[in-house]
Write a protein that binds this DNA or RNA. Structure first.
Length: 688
RNA sequence: CGCGGAGUAGAGCAGUGGUAGCUCGUCGGGCUCAUAACCCGGAGGCCGCAGGUUCGAGUCCUGUCUCCGCAACCA
């Protein structure tokens, strides 16, 4: 029984399928898996019929690229990471009813049947387009499999979808001198047929369903993103790809074609449900087809379009499925003021956390929940982790439980005393205890997990205050018959905490219940002040949480610093040295007027990422130049610096400012280094 | 002018028209059962900036600046 008005018969809760080309990190946990887990655990505790679905997403181009780079098969890649990911989720108590994978045969059949149904119902449009084809490798090339010269910046290693040097997004046909990554040969354009889901035909449906029906209950970030997509006008979207890794099209004469990974992945929720149902002799269909089922997708904000637009359109087109009731997408979690990045190894990996902080899953769960990016991007810092552990979990929650149990053992040899004599404060506290289950429950039901957790801590605070107000350690000498009531009530608060914290801190809940010698109880039991029987024996107190020392935090920070250094080194090692350019004459070289100059002022150019505006002293004049080095140098670090400059370069206007010259830089994969003289030379010194 | 989100006390956040709030930190006091933990009290904010609507604006409207995300690996 829930507190909010809408009553459903059952709940299907999903969390985004992690892509099996790397382990999972705190960003995944904070953004998706912890919120979903809290929600699912809460519903179970409230006695609802709920399944919580997860699994690894194992298809798509990046996995094939990774396999190729490492010289193994795609299947080996996904087997490796699926195992690591699954283990991490188990370690952190993410309570999936089933954690499946999209390489499962049942999934292949389900996705393929789904496609076939839409195909037979003529829900797709077929289009033939031209795409690059590698004649040596005899296959069509995904955008990432094509490199060439960027038409904008002449970078010779631009990809078919993007040039990483200048940042512009490209399509493969934009590239000059395209080259296949597979064979190195020049690919040719060839006709290929694909099936498209005509999203544009579902605009009215989406407008009605999202923009009107869910205006109030969806998060503003989710709603805004959807609105912008719908307002821009939707285009038909290809749901097939030319690739040999994935789910084969169930249509004759389509060799070498598979379902687009984003078509097959969300169907993974459905196939996982089927597998679960098989294992438990249940029927999967009510969880996906009964209108009295509430379907909720937990995702990160990057997945909004797939879960709010594309997948619902797929479900709608199929016809027999229900639609998600809510899609509580979280924003992103940053790490120490920097974007979490798998490729840059800027992350806290869950499997590493488990090694460094064994048995402290709940600490991370607590920290990530209390600063979850529910409304905007948030930052995870180790200092904050330590503070929240020491000042909140240890000092408030752990300490309350500890002092209560210690006093019980001290005065009553571990037997729960009777509450006979009750005064006004006792009664007031008992009344307050009653309010917490609903307070916390309502927040969880509204997906306000941060607020729910904070209310939980308030109950622990209430306990601490209650003890301090009554001072049983003094009263034991003056009014011992009342102390029994005080400790009874304090113990009841601890028992309540053990139930109410279960969705957030499942390991702590278990530990606390063991300590109190109590059985796990349903949510509806919480709020009651007779959870523990008078006269019953409690266990020995052990610490629920331990202080985190500075050294542990420093170790983690050191690890991150090393990752950053390693990263810089890798970037340098990966360099392909450019071949020597054509010979030039001495006269040609002498045309270049190179000088030692001094930077006088530096400031960022508004609205750009890379540009700095510099005022430079050339020895003979002072001029302005624009330089694309803002990602490598802070403006402050440049002022006063002597640099090597080409001064007779033709002036060029860049973003409204004329740049008169060019600062010379060593360039290694975008890492830039300023050149200068090893002696202090006066401004204007000639370089030759 | 590509699209979306955010800017509120030192830090992290809540607050969608009616006397600016929470957690942590900080300062002062109390207590000593407890992992130097707990409890009480105080200080600290022209709610990014500028206009407007209103009896009344953090909240609605317009303009503007800054940060983040999406489009493009990634929650």
């Amino acid at each position: 029984m829930l507190y909010t008005e809408n009553q459903f018969k059952r709940y299907t809760v999903t969390s985004a399928l992690p892509y099996a080309n790397g382990p999972v990190h705190i960003g995944h946990l904070a953004g998706v898996y912890i919120p979903a887990d809290i929600y699912a655990r809460y519903l179970r505790l409230a006695g609802e019929d709920v399944i919580y679905i997860g699994g690894s997403d194992e298809h798509g181009v990046p996995i094939t690229i990774k396999a190729r780079n490492e010289g193994i098969t795609p299947q080996e890649v996904v087997d490796h990471y699926h195992a690591i990911i699954k283990k991490s989720f188990e370690d952190f108590g993410i309570s999936f009813d089933i954690y499946s994978r999209t390489s499962d045969p049942i999934h292949h059949r389900t996705a393929s049947d789904f496609f076939l149904k839409l195909y037979q119902d003529n829900k797709f449009i077929e289009k033939t387009t031209q795409q690059y084809y590698d004649e040596e490798a005899r296959q069509f090339l995904a955008d990432r499999y094509i490199t060439g010269v960027c038409p904008h910046c002449s970078n010779e290693r631009a990809y078919g979808d993007q040039c990483e040097s200048c940042g512009t997004s490209l399509s493969p046909t934009d590239l000059l001198h395209p080259k296949s990554v597979l064979s190195g040969s020049e690919p040719v354009l060839k006709d290929t047929k694909h099936w498209f889901l005509p999203l544009n035909e579902y605009e009215d449906f989406l407008k009605e369903w999202i923009l009107i029906q869910h205006k109030q209950d969806w998060r503003s970030t989710v709603y805004g993103q959807c609105k912008s997509w719908i307002d821009m006008g939707l285009q038909p979207r290809a749901v097939t790809r030319d690739l040999d890794w994935g789910i084969k099209l169930p249509v004759p004469d389509t060799d070498g074609k598979v379902l687009y990974v984003w078509f097959d992945a969300p169907i993974g929720y459905i196939s996982a449900t089927k597998i679960w149902a098989d294992q438990h002799q249940k029927d999967w269909q009510p969880y996906w087809k009964d209108t009295e089922t509430k379907l909720v997708h937990f995702i990160g904000k990057d997945n909004i379009v797939f879960h709010c637009i594309i997948f619902p359109v797929m479900l709608k087109a199929e016809g027999s499925y229900i639609l998600p009731e809510n899609v509580p997408a979280n924003e992103f979690m940053n790490l120490e003021n920097d974007k979490i990045s798998t490729s840059r190894n800027w992350a806290v990996w869950l499997h590493e956390y488990m090694e460094d902080f064994p048995d402290k899953q709940d600490v991370l769960r607590y920290v990530l929940t209390s600063s979850a990016p529910e409304t905007k991007d948030n930052d995870f810092t180790w200092k904050d982790f330590q503070a929240k552990n020491n000042n909140e979990l240890v000092a408030i929650f752990g300490n309350f439980v500890n002092r209560t149990l210690v006093l019980t053992h001290k005065y009553y040899q571990g037997r729960i005393p009777a509450k006979d004599v009750l005064n006004e404060t006792d009664r007031a506290v008992m009344e307050q205890i009653k309010t917490y289950p609903e307070l916390i429950g309502r927040n969880i039901e509204k997906y306000h997990f941060r607020d729910g957790l904070s209310e939980l801590m308030n109950l622990a605070r209430l306990g601490n205050k209650y003890l301090t107000d009554n001072e049983p350690w003094k009263e034991i000498n003056t009014n011992p018959q009342h102390v029994t009531s005080v400790l009874n009530i304090a113990l009841q608060i601890a028992a309540n905490l053990s139930i109410l914290c279960e969705p957030f801190l499942p390991f702590t809940a278990k530990k606390l219940q063991t300590m109190l010698n109590m059985q796990p109880a349903k949510w509806s039991k919480a709020g009651c002040v007779s959870l523990l029987d008078e006269g019953a024996l409690i266990g020995e107190p052990t610490l629920l949480f331990e202080k985190t020392e500075d050294s542990a935090i420093e170790e983690q920070l050191l690890k991150l610093r090393k990752a950053k250094e390693q990263n810089a080194q890798n970037a340098q090692q990966d360099v392909e040295v450019e071949p020597q350019k054509a010979l030039i004459s001495y006269e040609d070289f002498m045309k270049a007027d190179l000088r030692i100059c001094q930077v006088l002022e530096a400031e960022r150019v508004a609205k750009t990422k890379k540009l700095l505006k510099l005022k430079v002293d050339t020895g003979f004049d002072i001029r302005t130049i624009i330089s694309g080095i803002a990602e490598n140098y802070e403006p402050e670090a440049l002022t006063g610096k002597k640099v090597l400059m080409l001064v007779n370069l033709q002036p060029k206007e860049i973003i409204g400012t004329v740049s008169q010259g060019m600062i010379l830089m060593a360039d290694c994969n975008g890492t830039l280094g300023i050149l200068t003289s090893d002696k202090d030379m006066p401004n204007g010194s000639i370089v030759k």
